[in-house]
Design a protein around this nucleic acid. Sequence first.
DNA 1: AATTAGATTGCAAACGTTTACGAAACTAAT
DNA 2: ATTAGTTTCGTAAACGTTTGCAATCTAATT
Lengths: 335, 335
Amino acid sequence: MKRNVTIKDIAKKLGIAPSTVSRALKGHPEINSNTIKRVKAKAKEMNYHPNLIARNFQRQKTNVIGVIVPEIRHQFFSGAISGIEEVAYQHGFSILVSQSNQNYEREQKNIDVMVSNQVAGLLISISETTMNKAPFERLVDRNVPFVFFDRAIENMDVGKVVADDFGGAYEAVEHLIKARYKKIFYIGGPRHLLITKERLRGYNAAMKDYNLPVSSDWIMFGGLDEEDGVKWFRKLMTRGILPEAIFAINDPVAIGLHMKIKQAGLRIPQDIALIGFSNNMITALVDPPLTTIEQSPSIIGAKAAKMLINQIENNQSHFDHTEVIETRLIIRQSS
Amino acid sequence: MKRNVTIKDIAKKLGIAPSTVSRALKGHPEINSNTIKRVKAKAKEMNYHPNLIARNFQRQKTNVIGVIVPEIRHQFFSGAISGIEEVAYQHGFSILVSQSNQNYEREQKNIDVMVSNQVAGLLISISETTMNKAPFERLVDRNVPFVFFDRAIENMDVGKVVADDFGGAYEAVEHLIKARYKKIFYIGGPRHLLITKERLRGYNAAMKDYNLPVSSDWIMFGGLDEEDGVKWFRKLMTRGILPEAIFAINDPVAIGLHMKIKQAGLRIPQDIALIGFSNNMITALVDPPLTTIEQSPSIIGAKAAKMLINQIENNQSHFDHTEVIETRLIIRQSS
DNA sequence: AATTAGATTGCAAACGTTTACGAAACTAAT
DNA sequence: ATTAGTTTCGTAAACGTTTGCAATCTAATT
């Protein structure tokens, strides 16, 4: 097994000390410019590559940022990861990526592995099932910088980058109201999720501002996937209370509803109007195209990465700052 | 700045040697089971976390796999990354992800950073602009295990996991032929890309096997994006030679064509039939839905990860083996 | 009581790099 | 020719962990 060439090897060949080589390689000012040249030439000749893990070990710090998401393949997250990678690259960081598959234990284990790997910081989007604040407080104690993006633990005074769920929801519902819908339902996600609560808050605020009554029957909580939309429509049908319009927690749920509504022979938006959340690609392509709310994943990712890198570079392991990324209502034919 | 607790700290507190602590922590058989208990208890009490970078440094090896893709956000690659992460996780590896944005220099720089980070191996899907074999041969020289997935350098005897481009293309064209189309065009990607060539080979083979003539006018090379499909249709119109059917290099190109064909007032599949490649989600949703070829991204990723891990664990830095993942023709209304 | 085998633990070096400190070599001024 | 100052380089320790080998201890055998 060939050994990699090290700084010592170069030093030996040149008859100088390893420390000189080390300094020369990074153009240290108090090394003779001639030796610098010789060293660099020799390094190239010998095909030297620095052993970053040795360097990081001695610095006790890496140039790696850990990224924790529920599921890599989901459009929002892959977009966010892309934005993160872009910013990280520009600042000389690499990214370590893992997915929790919405499993709390796995999420925590992944975080642990990353911290043990001495990542410079973490970007975390928590899983659906994560409610426990304690492990994140432990991260704060251990001085591991991190910022939440998209999905955050509530009531923690740390960095966060989130979409403007409240504003987006408000705008969507307002749009429905102005289109003369009155009986507007809110189909939310899991009760404890911040996005569920925030979007509900937006819904309620809009309804209230326009003096529209809201029945508690109109508000429901469930899952985040297409099948959940399907289930909800079935339940609505058996319950026999049909809305004039539905504001759904996200696009998959809206798409599930969309399919079922059409299958039931109802027209969108004449019988039931529909709005989703996220501007997944699919929403532009269904018939009729779905009105939805754009929240740019790569921008959220990029901003979160910037915030984290800022913390890292200023040695502030944490500071309480929430950045809210504006959403944009995209009006299509479903409303 | 709080220092992390180390093995030495535990040793000191317990009045034993660091080496004993190290061994105890991993349940070494020749350590008294009683000391093991004491050590483990103390470690938990002191909130000890192993410093993986120190361990990896001393082993001169990490449990990290580097993943290089052209663009993270593209559905195929995010799916592949997800499959990779899954397998990696099961084998105790983490993944370092970077994107080249189809830029050769950036790709190479990323590879370099990862190698310097002493990754255990690399999973590489090369960028569109990568044609140079040399840097990969250098990786072989340096004993860095890697396997290509999806997009590989040609004529290199290393591990590869690719979709069955030939078979998929053959099946697609055969399907068109059986549906009585004769004047079938092939709209390819960049000329040098392996997928372009392989799919063309499938096209030619099918045409030949069914004794259909092929004009060189019917075969064209270009880009991989939607806009390229758009451009091609314009060119076809100005050239005035219209196909009965088109087999496009991938879904985006097919979708571009799809849009333009409809805008031109032509009917799909009556006037022009159309087949794409990849089974992007969008293909199921356009009207009419697009016939396409499924190549499961997560399976390709997972297989590539398994192959790489196998190489890593057997200390075979390279072996020449190509795994071809079967494709599946998904027949929809566009053909 | 002396020897030995086996079980358990400690010593010390090593992995490649960085860096504080000091030594040497050179320059220029006296 | 001496000194002071400057430039350039070398020495050695450190980062946290693992591991080959030596050392100690226990208990069993002679």
